[in-house]
Design a binder for these strands. Structure first.
Length: 305
RNA sequence: GGCCAGAUAGCUCAGUUGGUAGAGCAGCGGACUGAAAAUCCGCGUGUCGAGGGUUCGACUCCCCCUCUGGCCA
């Protein structure tokens, strides 16, 4: 008996529409698995399905303000609450989104260290990395936790800092990782990933970015900047936002910003595909061969079996 | 029609006195355990316009053809 399904795949591949259709057919709602759609006010750039067009309720969108930090651990908590609730009611839970880590955190036995991530401490490490350089901060990790240092590339400052945070919390990154060599599912689940011809996908991405601009992405970003988005730790990393912020502050032209959004979206799509490929349980759906309707039928059939 | 310049990776181009080619951008692959739309790592993907000649050997020299741009008619 399948308890939860995930519908994922690259950006602009049609995940949301498909999830809506499946949810409608089997009488449930959709739980977003998207690291940027959690933010209020970030609608156009994250391609959030507009309220009026939602066939079924969409959960875990608009749950925090853009100046707040959210994380995989928090998502795990929130998503599992909802999934458990669905199971209690005998309903299938549908996770839909492109953030692979979030889906994994929800569906697999992934454990995060206790304690809160301390923004002030993170900022301090970021500053330290700035002044010491990548090699300098890496050296700090080598001294504190050589085993973890071995597993992290010295240039990957982001990971180096996280590993340092973990040592502060009394945990070792290396140790933590080795414990989860073979992921074990916590629910009975199926993961579907959408795919299509690369050229066609890139074409869709370009067109969607143009559409976002027409829908007023610049205005949306301006409004968010007034609420302090430029300083936000997480939300301002979103593709389509950071580029517009740079253009509005005069660092680039708007034309360059749009081109950059398209390119970064393409690369992002590629990384998403990479993530899906490494999961051997991924069930691929070729959207070149299936219509939305056929894809929905395919999924419904698989759930029943 | 004549003269000149060019034709090399998806694009823009480099390529020494002949030894089967390399940069940027684009692209492709991968990693990922509390920022993940983040962060990081790896990879030239090529009938050197076609055909012939010289040479042990031609992207390179010679001939011829095709195409493109410019100039002159």
């Amino acid at each position: 008996m399948v308890q939860v399904i995930a519908i994922t795949g690259p950006t602009a591949s049609g995940k949301s529409a498909l999830a809506d259709e499946v949810a409608l057919r089997i009488g449930t709602d959709v739980i977003s698995a998207d690291a940027m759609q959690v933010y209020r006010g970030m609608d156009i750039g994250t391609a959030k399905t507009p309220m009026a067009q939602r066939a079924v309720p969409l959960q875990l969108v608009d749950i925090v303000d853009p100046d707040q930090a959210y994380s995989a651990a928090l998502y795990q908590r929130d998503a599992r609450d909802l999934i458990d609730n669905h199971i209690e009611k005998g309903k299938l839970a549908i996770l839909c989104g492109g953030t692979g880590l979030y889906i994994q955190a929800a569906l697999e036995d992934m454990r995060f260290p206790q304690g809160e991530v301390d923004d002030a401490r993170r900022t301090r490490y970021n500053d330290m990395a700035e002044s010491l350089g990548a090699a300098g901060i890496y050296q700090l990790l080598v001294e504190r936790d050589p085993l973890s240092a071995e597993q992290i590339h010295p240039n990957n400052v982001r990971r180096v800092i996280r590993a340092l945070e973990m040592t502060d919390e009394g945990v070792s990154y290396a140790q933590q990782r080795s414990g989860f060599a073979q992921p074990t599912p916590v629910y009975s689940s199926l993961t579907f990933a959408l795919t299509m011809d690369r050229g066609a996908l890139y074409e869709r991405i370009d067109r969607r970015v143009d559409a976002m601009m027409n829908q007023g992405l610049v205005d949306e970003v301006s409004a968010l900047i007034e609420h302090g988005m430029s300083d936000a730790l997480t939300s301002r990393q979103a593709i389509g936002y950071k580029e517009i912020i740079d253009a509005l502050s005069g660092l680039t032209s708007m034309e360059e910003a749009v081109a950059l959004i398209k390119q970064r979206s393409r690369r992002y799509a590629k990384r998403q595909l990479s993530w899906c490929r490494r999961n051997p349980r991924t069930i691929w759906i070729d959207m070149d061969a299936y219509s939305l309707d056929q894809a929905a039928s395919f999924i419904v059939e698989r759930i029943g079996a």
